[in-house]
Amino acid sequence: MSKTAVFIATTEGPTRLQRLTAEAPDVRSVICLGGRAMVLPISPDYDTFVRRPTGVIEACYGHNAYRMDISDPIG
């Protein structure tokens, strides 16, 4: 088990980042709840944050599709 935990501050309280996985490039980045097949509505905004031309993650790390699993809903 990791000794480090990452939390995201939201207006509804802290949300723990459970897992971050690189997905195939043709997949749109998504934020899912609790490792389940439940895509949160904030996902299109996350994809915009990740993918070029607007995304900074692809510009910095060279990959354009990630899946983030979090413990509690955002947005």
């Binding site: 897992r19 996985t21 690189a22 997905e23 195939a24 043709d26 997949v27 749109r28 899912c32 490792g35 097949a37 899946r67 699993d69």
Partner: peptide, 16 residues
Amino acid sequence: MTLRESQADREQFYVI
């Protein structure tokens, strides 16, 4: 339409 297995969980897949 492409069905692609999720790298995070092989029991889930994307419909693109």
